[in-house]
């Protein structure tokens, strides 16, 4: 758990305010290569914000975030190039509404990496097949179910060959019967050794797949540990209350 130089993502003393609200308080977090870290906590705990600071969709007030030992670029080409190395999957999928499924996946490789069209499309089709939506390649996002859209969003990220992936509540907007099809893709990714930071309420996923669970409340990291430690022997009252509340239903 101690910071060492093999950590791919390092956050040191990160603070962030929204006006009066102190949404991130002295966050220290390291993610090792190949590690799957799950962020959980009640809504408003700052877990999504934390996830989004890692590819600078949110800026921070103080502290530092390092990726592969280098501080995040602040703007311009360097920032874009950095983001191309990090995949991001959103709660609301955010597929490009005017592009076909195939074009959604090839857009990044073609425009950012300069991959030739034929090659990009071939790889995109492989990825779409892998997440199980190859038949939908020529439809537009609105024609797909939420679960299918989210799997396309994952394929879109994978097409960039990311070094790490961020998942910001990827199943929260889905109907219950679609949650598993998305989680299965994520489990597969984890097993292949992808570095992942996952904000989720899916405790089964956290228990099965993650190497580490980080529990947040009120903008602070309250505790962290292996899934077994955390779920079976939570240390803080806040974590106990939280676990009770989600098991209670």
């Amino acid at each position: 758990m101690a910071a060492d130089n093999t950590a791919i993502i390092q956050m040191h003393h990160v603070d962030k305010h929204y006006g009066e609200l102190h949404v991130l308080q002295d966050i220290n977090l390291d993610v090792q290569k190949g590690e799957v870290v799950v962020l959980i906590g009640p809504s408003g705990s700052g877990k999504s914000t934390l996830c989004r600071t890692i590819n600078r969709l949110e800026t921070i007030d103080s502290g530092e975030i390092l990726f592969e030992g280098k501080p995040l670029p602040e703007e311009g080409k360097e920032l874009a190039a950095y983001r191309a190395e990090i995949g991001m999957v959103f709660q609301s999928f955010n597929l490009f509404a005017h592009k076909s499924i195939l074009d959604n996946v090839t857009l990044g490789p073609r425009e950012v990496l300069g991959t030739p069209k034929a090659e990009a499309e071939m790889e995109a089709m492989e990825l779409l097949a892998r997440v199980g939506v190859a038949e939908q390649a020529h439809k537009v996002p609105a024609q797909l179910s939420g679960g299918q859209q989210q799997r396309v969003a994952i394929a879109r990220s994978l097409a960039m060959h990311p070094k790490a992936m961020l998942f910001d509540e990827p199943t929260s907007a889905l109907d219950p019967e679609m949650i598993n099809e998305v989680l299965e893709v994520m489990v597969e990714l984890a097993q292949e050794g992808m570095t992942m930071v996952v904000v989720t309420h899916e405790m089964s996923f956290a228990r099965r797949v993650s190497n580490r669970v980080v529990f947040m409340a009120d903008g602070q990291i309250m505790e962290e540990g292996t899934p077994d430690e955390f779920f079976d022997h939570p240390k803080t009252e806040r974590a106990k209350d939280f676990l009770d509340s989600i098991r209670g239903h």
Binding site: Y18, T49, E58, E74, E75, G76, L79, Q91
Partner: peptide, 19 residues
Amino acid sequence: MSAHATSMRDALYEAPGPK
């Protein structure tokens, strides 16, 4: 969920860096 800048014309821009 974070409290976003609301309008699209603000959303078009990143939080600016020094340059």
